[in-house]
């Protein structure tokens, strides 16, 4: 096994693979969402290790900072915020056919992926499209920066718009409905939105600007 690789590379790969798969099974099998989130950190860390093993140092750092530092923290924040950190009964399954079907789908999908890997004609040795990944003077950081800011400049700018839209959407979705909501949605049982007092001046502009979006969200959530 792994005969053509050096001992250190093989050891790093096996170590990273064990962390990744252990964390992945932990995410799927743990009953507590907090434990699942911590297992997700293990998987993300293992993927970062394998990124470094493949000379993608910048992406490994971004992986740890963005995924483990931001996304998982966001998960944990929501779990704690909603108070769903209690155990879930995994034996309870309302749809009896779901688990066998899921297992069959997984086996089929894995078999398909392996068959694709074995049979597929990968275009190894093709011409480089963007630029070399190895052997650069500045390392992978310089190569990646050149690719992102030249070839992929327009997609890079588009991600900025995407992030802004996502932030605005999250704020609109997660905002607590204010007292300006019309009657029917208040009757839907939202205790916090049930203050009938006239709005203070400071909040008036805020809720009028977010009014239509809120209404839409209320309609969707109903």
């Amino acid at each position: 096994m792994l005969a053509s690789a050096t001992a250190v590379d093989s050891a790093v790969f096996v170590f990273g693979a064990m962390i990744i798969l252990g964390g992945a099974f932990g995410v799927v099998l743990s009953r507590n969402p907090v434990h699942a989130a911590l297992m997700l950190v293990a998987t993300l860390f293992g993927v970062a290790v394998l990124f470094i093993e493949q000379q993608a140092n910048f992406l490994a750092a971004v992986q740890v900072i963005v995924y483990a530092g931001a996304i998982v923290v966001l998960f944990l924040f929501v779990i704690m915020f909603l108070g769903v950190d209690r155990l879930e009964n995994l034996a309870e399954e309302p749809l009896p056919a779901q688990r066998p079907l899921a297992a069959a789908m997984a086996v089929l999908g894995l078999a398909g992926l392996v068959a694709l890997g074995v049979e597929g004609r990968w275009s190894v040795g093709a011409h480089q499209v963007v630029g070399a990944a190895r052997g650069q003077s500045g390392g992978d950081v310089e190569a990646l920066g050149r690719a992102v800011f030249t070839t992929y400049l327009f997609p890079f700018e588009a991600t900025a718009a995407l992030l802004v839209i996502a932030v605005v959407g999250a704020v609109v979705l997660a905002r607590r409905p204010s007292g300006r909501m019309p009657g029917p949605s208040e009757a839907g049982g939202e205790p916090a939105g049930a203050q009938p007092s006239p709005l203070p001046v400071g909040e008036g502009e805020d809720s009028s600007s977010g009014g239509p979006g809120e209404l839409e969200v209320e309609e969707v959530a109903r």
């Binding site: 963005v66 995924y67 996304i71 999250a170 959530a221």
Partner: peptide
């Protein structure tokens, strides 16, 4: 393939994943 394009694509996948998680968790809270 010795091509940096794959790593650039991973960079964009990270951004999209972050946006997806933010909106998804907002939906869960709502």
């Amino acid at each position: 393939l010795d091509d940096i394009g794959g790593q650039a694509l991973v960079f964009f996948v990270l951004v999209v994943a972050a946006a997806e998680v933010v909106v998804g968790l907002g939906l869960v809270v709502a």
